[in-house]
Amino acid sequence: MALLSVNGINFCYESKAVIKDVSITLSAGSLVGIVGPNGGGKSTLIKLLAKQMMPTAGEIVLKQQPLSNYTMKQLAKHIAYLPQHPTIPAGITVEQLVQYGRHPHQSWFRQWSEQDAEQVAKAIQLMNLESILDQSVASLSGGQRQRAWLAMILAQDTDIILLDEPTSALDIGHQIEVLESISEMVSAGKTVVLVIHDLAAAARYCDELIAIGEGKVIASGPVNDVITKSLIDSLYKTDVDIMQAPFDHAPVIVPRRKKSNVVDLKRLG
């Protein structure tokens, strides 16, 4: 049974079509990566899934109900979304940030419950934040900061987690730290969709990939069906070689130089 299905959605921004007739289904418990070139509509798609914006046409169905039927508060109990550049308020500690994740489950007359405490503690444990709970989020390293945000999202206790480029500004060490944390979330039973630029990391960590180019789904399915030379060539308009990583044979994508440059260099040499 599909947890979330997208049925032929379109989205126009200032009369320009950004998303064109996209249909995808999301099954429970998987880690799905959205890949594709800059400006291809990846972020827009994930924002539409999070109901940050409404599609111009078509429908997104969550648990047999169209997304438009949910209020923001109801939806926040099913879908958590982490934007690419979330604002960090001055002076906020890691613990406080994680507690914000409980907001959709609270009300004015019910500001803190057993479940709140339990979910916050679980999220902190899963993301390994015990030692930095009282530090201010702004003072953390990129990887720690991203883990703190992931813990907030986890505390929200939703089935679906949407992440917009959670690893984009990180060096490889912090990138692995965050991707491992995301794998932890999937092992804990979450369905995660993330926008990701690094194809090698996407291939290694995701169960399925969706390749988006010019607002359309170019390919989707298991990693090996999507990461093929012809597909990557046409998606990024670049010649690439696909190799295998020595450690686990995961595909590694190596772009070639443009031919003209190589010729120029030879002439110079």
Binding site: A76, P83, P86
Partner: peptide, 24 residues
């Protein structure tokens, strides 16, 4: 007082607040 809870969540930015269920 009623809106102070949401105002505190809005510190996280409009998009995060919205994903936390605030009708921004």
């Amino acid at each position: 007082m009623y809106f102070s809870r949401q105002l505190n969540v809005l510190r996280l930015g409009v998009d995060t607040a919205q994903s936390l269920g605030v009708n921004v």
